[in-house]
Design a protein around this nucleic acid. Structure first.
Length: 466
RNA sequence: GGCGCGGUAGCCAAGUGGUAAGGCAGAGGUCUGCAAAACCUUUAUUCGGCGGUUCGAUCCCGCCCCGCGCCUCCA
């Protein structure tokens, strides 16, 4: 079954394949670096990472561009407050973003594009729009005239034909001819940062950066453009208006939007005190894998209810998966093959792939994986599982981890090295043999304090770092 | 008001026109010197409400109730 993705533009599930050759040209709206990214932002970025990984799993090459918005009202205000230049201010949060992304194991896009590095491209784009008669200037600013783009609203499925000029009073300090028009270039205002350009002194509006950068790196038509659901309107709608007015071609073939998340069933907001960054969660002792798992476990088109119960559940789920992996790697098996398990393995892999092909249905994919885990554990417990089943089973887990990437622990305690642990374990085994259970329990507790968990199994003693 | 999304067990969450995946938590069990860990089993006569279509609906249609998002720079 081919990969199918829900396209906001057509409101349908469509079969996906790249337009040219085997390379997917994808653009995603990245962070605005005015602060640390919050868990809601990270849901979107985690989804984009899952999408990336699945496209690659399916054999496509990827050319993925993500932008960094490093000039914008909040940034300007915050930087001014701290007496910093734009660059000094955004550098801190740009760096912080990549630290968070690394912690969450988000693959780095092929290209990262900063808005402030592309002022020239933006100016050129605006000039092209002006040549086509799509703009007007007012009070030093340049605006996009929406009445020149009849298809406006096709992405968000809004009908703007009834909106009349002057229907609403503009609260902005900038003057617009029509309520829906948006600013391409903001004329210089008092102390704000500005660039000296043919358009006049000023700074870019928000939407133009994505059009200019996407087309510079990926061409006139993207295969995929992704972002949070809130960006569909007006941001992406405006990108379409700008880009398609310039090129006369579709800007993106697939528009993919991820839903927002709720915190404990409530909207995340600073005033409710339920506003979290990744750093907040790590400080509370949750692992990045738990956060990643939770964010990835709910399909992207559904609101995700982010709860601390959920984080704990995610952590427990990961443990279960790691345990079966270590059993599969460590247990001694009889030669031969168990036909039942061989079939279950093939079926699991097939259903796993089918789930993700179905618009990245991660919840269903996880269901398949856990059913398979149960099958494997049962076979191992019953002694049915054989040496020739091992590779296939590990392959299913590898297919899982290639996308979800949570099996490798992020931080391990290295208070004790492996040899040190082994020495204690041997001492405990000797104590047990001598029926000195007090000493044995003492060692167990000591290791536990150092983050080592001991498991006495039929096959002998197993240990792991927690 | 317009557009869009959703309401499935204690929590999270798939799904199908033929009678409900999976995870967590809970309960029981296996193992164990005891534990822990691990593993196994088990947990919704029922899918927001009321009608309709159908031999049959959680899944299709209509109405209603509830929650949420966007509708000028918020992932």
């Amino acid at each position: 079954m081919p990969l199918r993705l829900y396209n906001t533009l057509t409101q349908e599930l469509e079969e996906f394949r790249p337009m040219r050759d085997n390379t997917v040209r994808m653009y995603t709206c990245g962070p605005t670096v005015y602060n640390y990214v919050h868990i809601g932002n990270l849901r979107t970025f985690t989804f984009q990472d899952i999408l990336r990984r699945w496209l690659r799993y399916r054999g496509f090459e990827l050319d993925h561009v993500m932008n960094i918005t490093d000039v914008e009202d909040k940034i300007i205000a915050n930087a001014a407050k701290q007496g910093k230049t734009l660059e000094e201010y955004t550098e801190v949060f740009t760096k912080a973003y990549f630290e968070d992304a690394t912690a969450l194991r988000l693959q780095r896009p092929e290209q990262i594009a900063k808005a402030t590095d592309h002022i020239g491209e933006m100016v050129q784009a605006i000039e092209k729009l002006s040549e086509k008669g799509c703009t007007y200037t007012s009070d030093g600013s340049t605006y996009f005239r929406i009445s020149t783009f009849p298809e406006y609203g096709k992405l968000s499925h809004n009908d703007f034909s009834g909106i009349r000029s002057g229907a609403r009073v503009d609260m902005d300090e900038y003057e617009k001819a029509d309520a829906r028009d948006f600013v391409l270039w903001k004329g210089r205002k008092n102390e704000e940062p500005y660039w000296h350009t043919p358009l006049g002194d000023g700074r870019p509006g928000w939407h133009i950066e994505c059009s200019a950068m996407a087309m510079k790196y990926l061409g006139e038509t993207l295969d995929i453009h992704a972002g949070g659901i809130d960006l569909a309107f007006p941001h992406h709608e405006n990108e379409i208006a700008q880009s398609e007015s310039i090129t006369g071609r579709p800007f993106a073939r697939f528009w993919i939007h991820s839903e927002h998340l709720l915190i404990e069933s409530q909207k995340m907001s600073k005033s409710l005190g339920n506003f979290y960054t990744l750093r907040d969660l790590l400080a509370k002792g949750y692992s990045p894998e738990s956060v990643r798992y939770l964010l990835a476990s709910v399909p992207h088109r559904k609101k995700l209810n982010f709860t601390f119960d959920g984080l704990n559940a995610a952590n427990a789920s990961i443990e279960r998966l790691r345990n079966v992996e270590s059993r599969l790697k460590a247990e001694k098996l009889e030669t031969g093959i168990d036909e039942t398990n061989r079939q279950q393995t093939a079926e699991a892999l097939r259903r796993y792939e089918e789930s993700l092909d179905d618009d990245l249905n991660t919840a269903e994919a996880l269901g398949v994986v856990f059913e398979f885990v149960r099958d494997v554990n049962s076979a191992l417990d019953e002694g049915r599982f054989r040496e020739e089943n091992r590779a296939g089973a590990l392959k299913v887990l590898a297919a899982f981890d290639q996308i979800f990437d949570v099996l490798r622990p992020s931080h391990e305690s290295h208070e004790l090295d492996d040899a040190g642990v082994e020495r204690y374990i041997e001492e405990r085994a000797a104590a047990k043999k001598a029926r000195d259970f007090a000493r044995a329990d003492e060692i167990r507790a000591l290791l536990h304090d150092k983050g080592i968990v001991i498991e006495d199994t039929r096959e002998g003693i197993r240990w792991k770092r927690k």
